[in-house]
Write a protein that binds this DNA or RNA. Structure first.
Lengths: 199, 199
DNA sequence: GTCTATAGGTGGATAGAC
DNA sequence: GTCTATCCACCTATAGAC
């Protein structure tokens, strides 16, 4: 692997582990073994390197969302993506960046993060829309809205897991979301009009 | 206000705005107007000050959860707490800490965060249990699990909102969660036994 | 492209007088 | 309790030779 690639790889790891502000050029040099001169030859500033690393992390993350758009029934795909194995205590390598003041205040650094979430949201919303069409989800639920709910469950699950240093809350959070989705199957949607009449 | 109190107040604000790692003793001095000598007299290290500030932020947060335990029907209280006004773009002053490497790797600093979440979880679980008892929520839903789901929706909603620099995704996420809770009312829970028979 | 040397500024304190 | 002065390591580069 050439120096440039090695630097990006290393910075990606460190940004996942420690964030942007708390990762120094020295950390990157020491872990990668690349010298000072090379580093500043390829990336004039720390921010330039961070931008490349951020884009790499986003690219790492997006392929997994194809699970939402594969074969199988919409709900099966939704369940598969929601419940796919995730390192709860490590957190999300993209979502994490939103908590770094130097990233969130820098439109250029935040842009890849925003784009990634927009992309993931599209995937979720499409699958949820298909679930409604397939009669697996009540038609009065808003797929775009639910997409945000499910993304939030995952992002927030990481927060809970890290706080407790225990993946349990993360798994609880997503399992609970799945329970709710199942409870919202149209088969159970009897007498809604009756409930409304009581208001 | 005396220096000590002023320092804690200022550190609390800065930790909410910028986190722990990215807040320097100098920042605290400059914003608070307290001198170097006073600062190190009251708090020998930055970590000591951070711990006091963290505990203050936790204390700020917990009173609001009493909304989950007040008068009114359980679901009404759940909705009120879930939908209560929140500054989505500022994030959660407690949850934020889980993303700071220097906090998450320090058991002493992480402890107040863990305690706070445990406390909030108790409040959620109690209200959800009561909702089941009151017949507002299907009995086959697990309140402890759902409590984590709803906490995650809020914590994750902040992440989405900050990523897009728009409170919209936060509001979508929690509104979607409320939609699901309503879809999980027992009134709709007809023929559950039939569904199970099909497995 | 990579190396070593250098540099100004900040971080996180400590020392000691008042 | 508060003040000013001082300190060393580290951060984020820049310079210039090879």
């Amino acid at each position: 692997m050439d120096s440039r690639q090695l630097l990006v790889e290393t910075m990606s790891e460190l940004m996942w582990e420690r964030g942007y502000a708390d990762t120094s050029p020295r950390d990157v040099r020491e872990r990668s073994g690349v010298g000072q001169g090379s580093m500043y030859h390829h990336f004039p500033t720390k921010r330039d390197l961070a931008l490349a690393a951020l884009e790499r992390n986003v690219a790492d993350l997006l392929p997994a969302t194809s699970e939402l758009d594969g074969p199988g029934s919409p709900m099966a795909r939704i369940e598969a993506y929601l419940m796919r194995p995730r390192a709860a205590l490590r957190g999300c390598k993209v979502g994490r960046m939103t908590q770094d003041p130097q990233v969130r205040e820098d439109p250029v650094l935040l842009a890849p993060v925003a784009r990634a979430f927009t992309q993931v949201h599209l995937g979720w919303a499409k699958a949820l829309r298909e679930a409604v069409t397939a009669g697996e989800l009540r038609a009065d639920l808003d797929p775009e809205r639910l997409a945000h709910t499910l993304m939030a469950v995952l992002q927030g699950g990481y927060v809970l897991a890290i706080a407790q240093q225990d993946p349990g809350p993360f798994d609880d959070a997503r399992a609970g979301a799945l329970d709710l989705l199942r409870a919202a199957a149209p088969a159970n949607n009897v007498r809604v009009s009756e409930r409304n009449r009581r208001n």
